[in-house]
Amino acid sequence: MRALKLLALLPFAALLGGCDFVVLAPAGDIAAQQRDLVVISTILMLIIVLPVMALTIFFAWRYRQSNTAAPYEPEWDHSTQLELVIWSAPLLIIICLGALTWMGTHLLDPYRSLGRIAADKPIESKDAPLNVEVVALDWKWLFIYPDYGVAAVNELAAPVDRPIRFRITASSVMNSFYIPALAGQIYAMPGMETKLHAVANKEGSFRGFSANYSGAGFSGMHFEFKSLSAGGFDKWVANAKASTNMLGRSDYLQLERPSQDDPVRLYGTVDRDLYKAILNMCVEPGKMCMSEMMAIDAKGGLG
């Protein structure tokens, strides 16, 4: 009988075998701090949940119909001591959760520049951030490295222990940029720019994807994040520079067209103003940029 029960549990074990616990074992300091928030919050809530569950079982057993030895007090309706416990414990936990949330919201603000590389490693003046411009396309990701003049489709690389400063936008519909091992997700929206600061603390290859449904090719809209040593990142940049692919405005308009399951592609040359044009939705020749429209509106319009 016991063997049959164990066999019945095997399908559930198989389902759990497909779980990825990267959120609880991240590779970056920001993701690690977010993990700590989740763990601490869960423990605080379990302080209430576990006793309630245990007491539910205890009362059901103690006051079952067959237990004639249990006291029967139909007139009992109040206990000051019990009321204090029932109200004070949740109140204290809510205060702790509120303080934790308030501090975490400010310290882990995605727009806030990093204050440290890791728990025991503060930011130094030599730790210049790596600038990466991210564009969510249908259905692929474009990463532009303005400081190096290269770009990549569906592949992101960064050196270990170097701050990364992402500037994020989209070409058509809203997406969500998410690398669980690196930092929390943040939305990518056309005509708007969001920002994210992060750092990778160990080498490896990690999965990134869109966490917001965006149409038919959504399931294939993922990429590889390569966390490399300084030398490995230099080699990656050199390999990108050696590519004969060019990413000008006309090339981008071809790339922007919806496509699914695109392979990794590197670009050795990138138009310097391409990201600015994408953000202002004026890559097409002759199209007025949003920034120009706003400047005209600020002056009272064309009339």
Rank of each mutant, 00 (worst) to 15 (best):
L4S: 14
P11M: 10
F12S: 10
A32Q: 04
D36E: 12
L37C: 06
V39W: 05
V39C: 11
V39Y: 03
S41W: 05
S41M: 09
I48C: 14
A54R: 02
L55Y: 06
L55H: 01
Y63L: 07
Y63N: 04
R64M: 03
Q65D: 15
Q65I: 13
Q65E: 14
N67M: 06
P71H: 14
Y72G: 12
Y72V: 15
E73P: 00
P74S: 15
P74I: 14
E75N: 15
S79A: 09
E83K: 08
W87P: 00
L92A: 15
I95G: 10
L97M: 05
L100E: 10
M103E: 14
G104D: 09
H106I: 13
H106T: 12
H106G: 06
L107P: 00
D109K: 04
Y111G: 12
S113T: 11
R116M: 09
A119N: 10
A119R: 03
K121L: 14
P122Y: 04
S125E: 07
K126A: 15
D127Q: 06
A128Y: 08
L130A: 12
L130Q: 13
N131P: 02
N131A: 15
A136E: 04
Y145W: 01
P146T: 15
D147P: 01
A151G: 10
N154E: 13
N154M: 11
D161C: 10
P163A: 11
P163V: 14
I164P: 02
R165H: 15
I168N: 04
A170F: 00
S171M: 03
S176M: 10
I179R: 00
L182K: 01
A183T: 02
Q185H: 11
A188R: 01
P190H: 09
M192L: 13
L196C: 05
A198E: 03
A200N: 06
S205R: 08
F206S: 01
F209D: 07
A211S: 10
A216Q: 06
G217V: 05
M221G: 03
L228T: 05
L228D: 08
L228K: 01
S229A: 13
A230Y: 06
F233T: 07
K235Y: 05
K235H: 09
W236E: 10
A238M: 02
A238D: 14
A240G: 12
A242V: 03
S243W: 00
G248L: 08
D251R: 03
Y252H: 00
P258I: 13
Q260P: 00
Q260W: 03
D261F: 14
D262K: 06
D262Q: 14
P263R: 03
V264K: 08
Y267F: 13
Y267M: 04
G268V: 08
V270S: 13
V270Y: 02
I278K: 00
L279Y: 06
M281R: 11
E284F: 11
G286L: 10
M288P: 00
M290L: 11
E292K: 06
L302I: 11
L302N: 04
L302T: 10
